[in-house]
Amino acid sequence: MADLFDLSGRVALLTGASRGMGRVMAEALALHGATVVISSRKQEQLDEAAAWINAACARKGLAPRAHGVAAHAGRKAELEALVEETRKLAGPVDILVGNAGVNVFFGPISEIPDAAYEKTMQVNVQANLWLARLVADDMKARGGGAMMFTSSVGALRPSPTQGVYGMSKLALVHLVRNLALEFGPFGIRANAILPGLVRTEFAKAVWDTPEGEERARSKIPLRRLGEPEDFAGVAVFLASDASNYVTGQEITVCGGTSLWN
């Protein structure tokens, strides 16, 4: 049997990938053979992340295969340019990882300013629809592909302080379901990854508190916070032939916290 996790010859485009979960997922895809194009807003951070990934490849005796291309995930024109540059650098896109996201407002949903609501929905939902549409033709032409998008366990429950963020992530889950339905006949799979509380800069305001420490110590069945490294295998699985019959799913990676929700 061929190696189900071999990604040799495939091209992966990842947003929100200069650090944290995105960078870990990009590194894992590269180590399994994919050429990866990573994106976020700042080119300097991307250059550092690409160098990190290429160094990891070198330690395994592999050629450099990571490129960084800056783009703002909430701007359609920049995403269009990102996809075009990806094709120039690496070729048609086989794997899409929509990991960029924002959480710009903490407070009651009834008090969120219109601008904060619109930014949250545009970056967390609409940008991923733009990306899916931009790369779909590449995948159709090659007979299939894999899309994955980072949602959140916040999609599963209401929150007194992060209601719109959770709303956007639930909308993203439904977007994934529709992408799976519409693109399935072309061999394109789409899945959502729902992280729990992960020790990243993005979520630091939540986990780096006495309450966050207590939650990890007593409420998470595995008795620890998630780490970015916990998402390496999930990304490789969803990108590879190992998940050929998995689409339209929500893969919850939360240490067990969603058991009671």
Score class of each variant (00 low, 15 high):
212 G>D: 02
212 G>L: 00
212 G>C: 00
213 E>V: 01
213 E>A: 14
213 E>L: 02
213 E>T: 08
213 E>D: 12
213 E>Q: 13
213 E>K: 12
213 E>P: 00
213 E>W: 00
214 E>Y: 03
214 E>H: 09
214 E>Q: 12
216 A>G: 08
216 A>P: 04
216 A>S: 09
216 A>E: 02
217 R>P: 04
217 R>T: 06
217 R>L: 12
217 R>E: 14
217 R>I: 02
217 R>H: 11
217 R>D: 13
217 R>C: 05
218 S>Y: 11
218 S>N: 14
218 S>P: 00
219 K>Y: 13
219 K>T: 12
219 K>L: 14
219 K>I: 02
220 I>P: 01
220 I>N: 06
220 I>R: 06
220 I>S: 05
220 I>E: 03
221 P>W: 11
221 P>E: 11
221 P>I: 10
221 P>Q: 13
221 P>F: 11
222 L>E: 10
222 L>Y: 10
222 L>S: 07
222 L>P: 02
223 R>K: 15
223 R>Y: 13
223 R>N: 15
223 R>C: 12
224 R>L: 10
224 R>M: 12
224 R>Y: 08
225 L>I: 05
225 L>N: 01
225 L>S: 04
225 L>T: 05
225 L>Y: 04
225 L>K: 01
225 L>P: 04
226 G>M: 11
226 G>N: 13
226 G>T: 12
226 G>A: 12
226 G>I: 11
227 E>G: 07
227 E>R: 14
228 P>K: 06
228 P>F: 06
228 P>V: 07
229 E>F: 01
229 E>Q: 10
229 E>I: 04
230 D>M: 13
230 D>S: 12
230 D>N: 12
230 D>I: 11
230 D>K: 12
230 D>Y: 12
230 D>C: 13
230 D>L: 11
230 D>E: 13
230 D>T: 13
230 D>G: 10
231 F>E: 02
231 F>Q: 03
231 F>L: 09
231 F>R: 00
231 F>M: 01
231 F>V: 05
232 A>H: 04
232 A>Y: 07
232 A>I: 07
232 A>P: 02
232 A>R: 13
233 G>P: 06
233 G>S: 11
233 G>M: 09
233 G>R: 10
234 V>S: 07
234 V>C: 09
235 A>I: 09
235 A>C: 11
235 A>V: 08
236 V>T: 08
236 V>F: 06
236 V>I: 08
236 V>D: 04
236 V>R: 04
236 V>N: 07
237 F>H: 10
237 F>M: 14
237 F>N: 04
237 F>A: 08
237 F>W: 15
237 F>V: 08
237 F>S: 07
237 F>G: 03
237 F>I: 09
238 L>G: 06
238 L>F: 05
239 A>Y: 03
239 A>W: 06
239 A>V: 05
240 S>R: 00
240 S>P: 00
240 S>V: 01
241 D>E: 14
241 D>Y: 00
242 A>T: 08
242 A>V: 06
242 A>Y: 09
242 A>D: 05
243 S>P: 05
243 S>W: 04
243 S>M: 02
243 S>I: 03
243 S>Q: 06
244 N>S: 15
244 N>V: 10
244 N>R: 15
244 N>D: 14
244 N>G: 14
245 Y>E: 01
245 Y>K: 02
246 V>W: 01
246 V>A: 06
246 V>Y: 04
246 V>K: 03
246 V>P: 01
247 T>R: 02
247 T>V: 05
